[in-house]
Design a protein around this nucleic acid. Structure first.
Length: 672
DNA sequence: GGGCGTGTATTTTTT
DNA sequence: ATACACGCCC
């Protein structure tokens, strides 16, 4: 790498930065908080900062830790730094919190018995399956009608973990939740005996490791000379603690965030971390550096966004965003009769933009809930607009992919009973509930894993010979492939397991419709074969894929996604649908804090727009099959009519929807 | 042990 | 409205 003398000549990577950005890049030492307004060039600042640290030889590649919000953001950050420095970053630590923890734990979890490095990562479905089993084992199951649904347990347990409340302490802090209090320790024990961690555990066990193990703590804290954290406003308590340990030796930590864009309170993110950071670093002379010039949006869009967000602010660290991009259209607001008309209107806007020369990849449709995508999909299909739904039914959540992954997981981690139960009878092996129960008994009696007990099925009376044979074969296959975990890579193992278990053949025999399923599984195998990694590493990567990661800006395809998923992205044309009370703000978000978060969510959506912003609102909407009237969102009133261009729906729409009369169309009007 | 029918919950947002 | 879970019957 070429070294540039510090003073002689300004490094090329600093060119084009504004004074605020330059200050943020150069303030490498000590504690720094960058308050980065939407579209203020935050990513560029972080990438340049990393490049600067490396170019000035303040640290070597592996001595820098950068944490981003999504894996996609991590990849982008990596490639930006690589192009700034014209070098390969290799295995530099740029990742999400969860991926970072998975990577650390892969090496260190042996210090936390009974876990070993092949641990499984449980997603929501796995968590639900596990908690269902626990509920079933309770004597009250089926007797007490007040037992909450499994999802309630998972939610409450996750909340407890985010606040670092242990199973032992839970009942004392939350005495009214006695069902959860009873299940929580059982849930943790079941995870441990399965050598499995849920998403929250990845963070918690890493914190625990750093807290309890001095050698490990000194190793990591000593290694990272510089730490950078993006989207800091959405960190939670375990993440805060994690950073405290990691920064403890060198003290060079830069957090970048925007309290106005904090939208993950519901999953434990704590904006108090912003204040806590300032407080805990006061003695270290923490610097607060704002980025307030917006390079993304036009002034009318920013004006509207500012009007929306200012009434909801609680911290006053943020500045009013400004831009020198003059001109541009005011955000357009349209009232439609119902969600169908709304969908057709959106399709029309996209077709118009298409005609005007815009590529559909530069447009996005945003909504509060996934369910809203349905009407849009229908309209887009009719109008032959190519679209891509981001999130919703994700690739890795499809049944056949989950089944295939369960095969891989049980081989990687034979203690993972949830995975084993998933596939023991897929394809049908004549092992139903009764047989499974007997196998569990054997495993318990002999103190062996369920996967090993499969080979003892021969000892169970009254099981068909055919069933015994195929179950024994499955047990042998799992054992054999598990032994090859180190000698073979993920691609090799995936292909062999899925072929030899008979899963692929069985899938191929299914109905014509199932053929896409077979293709999906082959796609998974291809993904495993892409790079020669170990099976546990591949599984960890797959488990931590986020919605935003799968956005590939295919040319000529418009993306549809939730407002949450849109965080960090930008588009020429942004269309936000469903600006109605009970949807945005959502009906379930009635508390003061909840409402503030809904407002920020809308703000995040608006500030994704570079050139054009379109807002829609329907007068009638169906919820769970029931139609009901809708009222425009209170947030529209906050933006103010003077900051919006309110459109009358063109005639063509009444042609398409002759059954609506104009009176009814505007019956939902309130503010305008 | 598997297939079909009825009943119920589902829609907040996600690593 | 629909998907999934559970229960009943073969």
């Amino acid at each position: 790498m070429e070294v540039i003398p510090a003073q002689a000549q300004e490094p090329a990577y600093l060119k084009g930065l504004n004074p605020e950005q330059r200050t943020a890049v150069l303030a490498t030492e000590g504690a720094v908080m960058v308050i980065a307004g939407a579209g203020s060039g935050k990513t560029r600042v972080i990438a340049t900062r990393i490049a600067h640290i490396i170019a000035q030889r303040l640290a070597r590649l592996h001595e820098i830790l950068a944490v981003t919000f999504t894996n996609k953001a991590a990849r982008e950050m990596r490639s930006r730094v690589e192009s700034l420095l014209n070098t390969d970053l290799g295995t530099m630590w740029i990742s999400t919190f969860h991926s970072f923890c998975a990577r650390v734990l892969r090496h260190e979890i042996k210090h936390i018995p009974p876990f070993n490095s092949n641990f499984s990562i449980f997603d929501r479905d796995d968590q639900l399956a596990l908690i269902r089993r626990i509920i079933k084992s309770s004597p009250e199951d089926g007797v007490n009608p007040n037992i909450p649904p499994p999802s309630y347990f998972i939610h409450k347990i996750s909340l407890a973990k985010n606040h670092m409340i242990t199973p032992q302490d839970y009942i004392a802090t939350t005495p009214q939740e006695h069902f959860v209090a009873a299940a929580y320790p059982l849930y943790q024990e079941a995870l441990a005996s399965s050598n499995s961690l849920d998403f929250d555990d990845l963070l918690l066990y890493t914190v625990k490791l750093l807290a309890d193990n001095q050698a490990v703590r000194e190793h990591y804290a000593g290694m990272f000379r510089y730490i950078l954290v993006d989207e800091y406003q959405d960190t939670n308590q375990p993440q805060f603690r994690l950073l405290r340990y990691l920064e403890s030796v060198h003290g060079n930590i830069c957090v970048v965030g925007d309290p106005d864009q904090s939208i993950y309170r519901f999953r434990g993110a704590d904006t108090a971390n912003v204040e806590a950071f300032l407080r805990t670093h006061q003695n270290a002379g923490v610097q607060i550096l704002p980025l307030s010039q917006n390079y993304r949006s036009t002034q009318p869009i920013l004006d509207a966004a500012n009007e929306l967000i200012v009434p909801g602010r609680t911290l006053d660290v943020n500045k009013r965003l400004w831009t020198d991009r003059r001109g541009g259209n005011k955000p357009r607001l349209v009232l439609t009769a119902d969600e169908r008309e709304e969908a057709y209107f959106v399709a029309g806007v996209l077709q118009q933009a298409l005609k005007a020369g815009m590529s559909l990849r530069n447009a996005v449709v945003l909504y509060r809930t996934h369910a809203q995508s349905r009407a849009l999909e229908e309209a887009f299909r009719k109008k032959e607009l190519p679209y891509l739904i981001v999130g919703g039914l994700r690739f890795y959540e499809r049944k056949e992919i989950k089944d295939a992954l369960a095969y891989l997981r049980i081989v990687s981690n034979p203690l993972d009973e949830i995975s084993l139960e998933r596939i023991i009878n897929v394809p049908p092996r004549g092992a139903g509930n009764t047989t499974l129960e007997k196998l569990r008994e054997i495993a318990k009696m002999r103190g062996i894993p369920l996967a090993v007990a499969l080979e003892s099925i021969k000892d169970i009376p009254r099981v068909a010979d055919k069933s015994k044979k195929s179950v024994t074969k499955l047990g042998e296959l799992i054992a054999k492939k598990h032994e090859e975990l180190e000698s073979k890579n993920a691609g090799e193992l995936a292909r062999e397991i899925l072929e030899q278990s008979g899963y692929l053949a069985w899938l191929g025999e299914q109905e014509e419709e199932e053929q896409t399923r077979l293709e999906n599984v082959w796609e998974l195998i291809a993904a495993a074969e892409e790079e020669p990694v170990s099976l546990p590493d591949f599984l960890a990567t797959v488990a931590l894929v986020t919605d935003a990661d799968q956005i590939d800006s295919e040319a000529g395809v418009v993306s549809l996604m939730t407002l949450h998923t849109a965080k960090g992205l930008e588009f020429d044309l942004v269309i936000i649908v469903g600006l109605e009370e009970n949807l945005l703000p959502h009906a379930q978000s009635s508390g003061v804090e909840d409402l503030a978060e809904e407002r920020r969510l809308f703000y995040v959506g608006m500030t994704r727009a570079r050139k054009d912003l379109v807002l829609t609102c329907a007068a009638r909407r169906a919820f769970m099959g029931m139609w009901g009237p809708s009222v425009p969102s209170r947030f529209l009133a906050d933006i103010g009519a003077e900051n919006l261009q309110i459109l009358e729906l063109p005639r063509t729409y009444s042609d398409e929807y002759a059954f609506y009369d104009r009176e009814r169309r505007y019956s939902g009007r309130r503010h305008y």
